[in-house]
Design a protein around this nucleic acid. Structure first.
Length: 566
RNA sequence: UGGGCUAUCGCCAAGCGGUAAGGCACAGGACUUUGACUCCUGCACUCGUGGGUUCGAAUCCCGCUAGCCCAGCCA
């Protein structure tokens, strides 16, 4: 993505200066001061769930920075709490990160749990320096001793144990001599700190749990605040970029790297998470929707998990563009969903074929077209991109057109079909509506028209112009398909969950339209292909639910509002 | 006066003492084999608020207000 430096010699003022974000400014400064010679960043998910679009921001920010500065990006599984972690999640996270980044070498993948031995040694070092102690207080007692937001805490009665005693106890913690929860190792900092994180935080707990990576080798596990700075330091991370809620932890982060005397301590920098309007972000909510069976799974197209976005047809490029446009700052904000849609439209419009499909069909009979004749028209796959080639599309006397492309009594500014009006059948001929047929309820079931052979698309006909162009599908050759239009799960006002625990859900979040007709070329398309459909926006063939005779299309992007009828 | 952070157009977001970039959205027009795309045009005399410093402030200082985060042996 990075363009090489201009090699045309002089430092031309060239590319109008793209504004840099505050993180780039920090890195620029660090580099100028010679603090680091190579930038290393990381994305450290805990494998306790699937990734969503919010994580994509972190992934792309970190990896993007590494790319830009010729550094390295690490994917590191922050697996220090086996209670919540599963290898199922490391698999999915790996896949999602690969997809978002476009690529990831196996050398770029790390596990915090691989450092457990070193972390243990670092803890011992802290004890030896008199900076950590084993505490026998219960969890509740520790909470009481910690004080509150407005009151200082008080020292643990075990705070002054000797180094020897602490060393002995900690070793026995590791050896499994103590019950879960009976003892912890704590950093000795300051119980009266206004920052609660500095009030002698617990850095190691006893927990007999099977770890997905280390099995039952350990019965003590390090806490995030102790483990994270060490993980960063071990990997040579220079800029540890995380979200705002860790800002209060930075003093502790710095304390750890300082007490452990790392030569080139990593630096933590925080940025605001990405929120999206009109959708449910947040691992916790998504997790609950999945667990409660409200959605079909983590990749349900109504969600904004990475897996769901992929299934819906978003491309990695579109996600990257979106993050680019969203920017990075420390201001709590939420990006407009319309911007995400803009990105996928922008990405797809030149690189996907445009095919025709009729969602809500009504018959169109061309009365002056020969009976039983089918002609094959040459149709461009993408008018703006000739490289996408052409295909043959069958055309005949009886077609299907979209129901709302015909009106008996057109409102003003309606350019499509109505009695007496002439329109272009896209890629085919001009047709003029002569008549229509209704059933006993007055519902239009058939539209009659005549066509003008002179006006065939591509023939260069310029005799007259029409204001409207509509799409169609040859009735005889059309394939039936099921098209599902998914809407995001949303509740703009209250979020998905109410305070009383009930769930708000858009009842229209899943719509299935039967009897949709598509070109056979579309029906034969491979899985996970996305297409632009005339007038309906963009769709993807969903491989997960597709079989040979049952094709599922998901609409991935709505049209612009001005594009809608009405 | 517990601590930390943030406040610039409907939504993001530049700006860092010299007189408000850009994108999305929206509106109008041109073009058109998708009412799409593309192309023009419009869209903050004003930067949460009240003071102060200065020739000059969104940018510096003081006060206020609002929002977010923190009292896991979660990350």
């Amino acid at each position: 993505m990075k363009s090489p430096n201009n090699i045309d010699g002089n430092e031309s003022p060239k590319e109008e200066k793209v504004s840099r974000n505050f993180i780039q400014n920090i890195i620029d400064k660090d580099l100028a001061e010679g603090k680091y010679d190579k930038i290393v960043t990381r994305f450290p998910p805990e494998p306790n769930g699937y990734l969503h679009i919010g994580h994509a921001k972190s992934i792309l920010l970190n990896s993007g920075l590494a790319d830009e500065y010729g550094g390295i990006f690490h994917l590191r599984f922050d697996d220090t709490n086996p209670m919540k972690e599963k290898s199922e999640f490391v698999e999915s996270i790996m896949e999602d990160v690969r997809w978002v980044c476009g690529d990831l070498d196996s050398e770029q993948v790390y596990y915090a749990s691989d450092y457990f031995d070193q972390m243990y040694e670092f803890a011992v070092k802290l004890i030896q320096k008199g900076k950590a102690f084993v505490c026998d207080l219960s969890a509740e007692q520790i909470r009481e001793y910690r004080g509150t937001l407005t009151e200082v805490g008080k020292n643990s009665p075990y705070r002054d144990r000797t180094v020897e005693e602490n060393l002995d106890l900690f070793e026995r913690m590791r050896a499994g001599e103590f019950e879960d929860g009976s003892k912890v190792l704590r950093a000795k900092i300051d119980m009266s700190s206004p920052n609660i994180n500095m009030r002698d935080p617990v850095i190691y707990r006893v927990a007999r749990m099977e770890h997905h990576n280390t099995g039952d080798k350990w019965c003590i596990y390090p806490m995030y605040d102790f483990a994270h700075p060490i993980e960063d330091a071990i990997e040579g991370v220079t800029h540890s970029i995380c979200t705002l809620e860790f800002e209060d932890h930075r003093p502790l982060y710095d304390w750890v790297v300082r007490e452990l005397e790392f030569e080139k301590p990593p630096k933590q920098i925080e940025f605001a998470k990405l929120y999206l309007t009109n959708v449910v972000t947040g691992k916790r909510y998504i997790k609950k929707l999945v667990e409660d069976g409200i959605v079909d799974g983590w990749d349900d197209p109504r969600l904004v998990s990475i897996a769901a976005l992929r299934r819906r047809g978003f491309t990695p490029e579109s996600i990257r563009m979106f993050m680019e446009l969203s920017g990075v700052s420390k201001a709590q904000s939420s990006s407009d969903y319309a911007m995400l849609e803009y990105c996928i439209r922008e990405d797809l419009k030149l690189k996907r074929p445009r095919m025709m499909a009729v969602l809500d069909p009504i018959k169109l009979v061309i009365t002056n077209y020969p009976e039983n004749e089918i002609e094959y028209l040459d149709v461009s796959n993408n008018l703006e991109n000739e490289e996408m080639g052409t295909r043959k599309v069958p055309f005949g006397k009886v077609l299907y057109i979209e129901r709302d492309d015909f009106m008996i009594e057109p409102p003003k500014k309606y350019f499509r079909l109505y009695p007496g009006n002439e329109v272009r059948l896209m890629n085919a001929y001009f047709v003029t509506c002569t008549d229509y047929v209704t059933d006993e309820d007055g519902k239009v079931i058939e539209v009659h028209c005549t066509y003008d052979p002179e006006t065939k698309s591509g023939s260069g006909f310029a005799g007259r112009k029409v204001k409207g162009t509509i799409h169609w599908v040859c009735a005889e050759a059309a394939e039936k398909a099921e098209i599902r239009l998914y809407e995001n799960i949303v509740d703009e006002e209250k979020g998905v969950y109410n305070e009383d625990g009930t769930i708000n859900m858009n009842p229209n979040s899943l719509t299935v339209l039967h009897n949709a007709y598509v070109e056979s070329a579309l029906a034969e398309a491979g899985p996970m292909e996305s297409f632009q459909f005339v007038r309906q926006g963009y769709f993807i063939v969903d491989s997960k639910d597709s079989t040979k005779e049952h094709i599922v299309f998901n609409r991935i992007v709505s049209m612009k509002s001005s594009y809608r009828p009405n």
